[in-house]
Design a binder for these strands. Structure first.
Lengths: 154, 154
DNA sequence: CTTGCCCTTGACGTCAATGTGAGGTTTTAG
DNA sequence: CTAAAACCTCACATTGACGTCAAGGGCAAG
């Protein structure tokens, strides 16, 4: 299969495939005229590479991991890498969850304009940011609050 | 508080704080001599901004979200943004989970050299990548497998 | 043969959140 | 008063995974 076909089946650009090759992640054969030729299995491989890229692994790391996929072996260094990348991913998931929760709080506040949930009446979920406070010594948090409240529905 | 103090307390660089200001995310007061002065609340705000950055939200999006944090209001557009970013984050978490599972499979294989888990004997978790296959028509997947297996412990 | 599509290499562009350094001012500590 | 530390404004550099354009070669169909 030539590069265009692989690109289509794997859902990436030909530029990406050439980049992967440049990074040593993919080593297609060449026809006498110089055109790249890939085995069927390259589609799966590209999908795996993409999955790793999407997860934020840099190409250099993927390069160290791929032989381990092929052989089923993991040198101590590769093993360490596997473990550290796994924990990096776990940490990233936690960060995402935290941000998602922050968004959820915002959505929640915007969704509940009843008195007990009214932004103007409840404890602020975040400290209000008021640049003018910088000039005062200890601004009272509940002073100068916006007294209006609005419900914006979906 | 001046920029260095905020940077220290929020765990970011002063360069980052100036960048946030440039992007409109932070609007500190200025002393007559031109130095930035932040309220206490800026520390919390910076942490929130960082959380969003870590989650992959671009500054332009954060800029649209912050007023909503302050006022407790969400315009229809802001609401849409909240929802779409939330789903983006959810999708990103799924991608991370998939990559983590791929790593787990690799760790698993490397960890179990017993016959039934031996890479040389079991069904391959991924199709073997063999560039030479490109020249043949339909390579038999189990041909030319590496017969050795190794256990690398943690 | 030629039209047209796919392929090649090479090289510069992009985007975003910073890093870094120059060159100068302000604040603080002694 | 003075020296160090912290601050200021430019403005260019970095990183990584590509996008994009240029200038050409290969190959099947009509």
């Amino acid at each position: 299969m030539r590069i265009g076909e692989i690109a289509h089946q794997a859902g990436v650009s030909t530029r990406a495939l050439r980049y992967y090759e440049e990074q040593g992640l993919l080593t297609p054969e060449r026809t006498p005229s110089g055109q790249r030729t890939y085995p069927e299995s390259a589609v799966e491989r590209v999908r795996l590479i993409q999955q790793f890229f999407t997860a934020g692994l840099p190409s250099r790391t993927i390069l160290q991991l791929l032989p381990c996929v092929d052989t089923g072996h993991a040198s101590p260094k590769a093993f360490e890498l596997l473990a550290s990348e796994r924990s990096r991913i776990t940490a990233a998931m936690a960060d995402l969850a935290a941000a998602r929760d922050a968004l959820d709080r915002m959505i929640d506040i915007a969704n509940h304009p009843t008195p007990e949930h009214c932004p103007a009446l409840r404890e602020p979920a975040w400290a209000p940011y008021n640049p003018a406070d910088a000039t005062r010594t200890a601004p009272h948090p509940t002073a100068a609050r916006d007294a209006s409240a609005t419900l914006i529905t979906m």
